[in-house]
Amino acid sequence: MLRDLFINLTILVTFHYLFMLVFKENFLKKEDTLLRQLCKGMLSGLLGVLLMFFSIKAGPAIIDLRHIPLILTAFYGGIAQTFIAACIVIIGRLLIEANVASFINIFSMMIIATASFLIAERHINHVVKMLLSITISNVIATILFITIVHETSFELHFAYWIFSYIAGLFNFYVIEHQTKAYQLLNLYKFQAHYDFLTGVLNKRKFDEVLSHAFSTKWKQSIHQMSLIYLDIDYFKSINDQYGHHEGDIVLKEIGTRLIKNTRSSDFIGRIGGEEFAVLLPNCSVEKTWQIAERLRRKIADQPIYLQDGTSIQTTVSIGCAYYPGTHTDIKKLPIIADQELYKAKQSGRNQVSFSERMRNHLT
């Protein structure tokens, strides 16, 4: 029996590991696309069918762990996936043998699926929910053993209950561990690429994107691009007057407005304390000017509310560089953008400076 239990545990763990590799962040999404829900439900059901073929011999009787995938699907997948999985298990059972026992078994699968889903929706401890689901499943199985197979052996029922708890809780632990590991990996990836405060790219990642943009590969597919440098005006005075915590709120709000008012194809980065940059692939001179002006207005025209409810007006100075423009060397874009930003500051702040503006008569 222990050998059979080990095989079943190996099947369950291997399946759930592969399941997470395939679906990744969608693994635990209950509100998913219909196609993904169908796929996840069918795969969980097929796992239940597979476990029927690797049943555990317990004396004269045979027990299996087909209910474990149903419980775990109810716990992590939601109602649609649970009943899809239950239907697949039922079809698999009928294909093996269709008799009175199989139809009673079908009824039990639906009860287990329903009960597990209702328990999973309760706001109680996850381990308690898993124990309740397994216990209900075990009670149903015990009743079926006694009424259908007429098996009253205490050793058999005890073995089934123990194996069921081991398989259910062990796989629950494995899934929870995998989930936390995947969440941590995503968090580390985010922290490696994004600024934790503003949600835009950090300087290292933005420099990497910029370097990639200057490479031959990008120049072949992108014939024009623009770079915007943006600096918050008098940000030091905001920190001095309201404190660094309130200054962080300003930075976060600026990052949010940059994201909302640029294209999905653009790259936004925080490259200094109060300095941001926006890379605009395939962006014309006219469009660059429009985006830069829109960013300036969206920041200047709408107040930023601090934690205590105080509203402050914030402005930004913006410098723009365009390729191919007056300078044919694409790698000079950061230098030109920085020079234009300096001009915007020297000219009174809260404005856009763009070397191409006069040449192209932009308004």
Rank of each mutant, 00 (worst) to 15 (best):
F158E: 10
N350F: 01
A80F: 12
V174S: 11
G92Q: 04
I119C: 01
L28N: 12
F53C: 06
V49E: 09
Y17M: 09
E293C: 13
V89F: 08
T142E: 01
T152M: 05
T135I: 09
H244Y: 08
V49G: 04
R270A: 10
V285C: 12
P334M: 00
L306F: 07
G325E: 09
V22A: 04
I299C: 11
R359F: 10
T152K: 15
W289C: 11
S108W: 00
Y305R: 09
I71A: 14
I162L: 12
G269M: 12
K129W: 07
S164L: 04
R294Q: 15
G92V: 07
S347V: 13
S264C: 14
F172N: 03
A74H: 07
T152W: 08
Q313R: 13
T310Q: 08
F190T: 15
I335G: 08
G309I: 04
A321K: 02
I335E: 14
L12N: 05
K252D: 08
L280G: 06
M1F: 12
F53L: 11
L95H: 01
T314E: 08
T82W: 10
Q178G: 10
V149K: 06
L118C: 00
R263G: 06
T14D: 00
I249F: 01
S264T: 15
M225V: 06
Y194K: 03
E121M: 14
I79R: 11
L50Y: 02
G48Y: 03
S353I: 09
K129L: 05
Q302Y: 13
F190Y: 15
A113D: 01
S116Y: 08
I330K: 00
I62Y: 05
T10F: 15
L230S: 13
L21Q: 15
H244A: 09
T315L: 10
K219F: 02
R3Y: 13
Y234I: 11
R36D: 00
V209A: 10
F54P: 04
E121S: 03
V100L: 15
M109F: 07
I166L: 14
I71M: 12
V149Q: 10
G269V: 05
S311P: 00
G319W: 08
K332A: 13
I91C: 07
I136E: 04
Q178L: 15
G45K: 01
I249T: 15
I79D: 02
T314S: 13
T142Q: 02
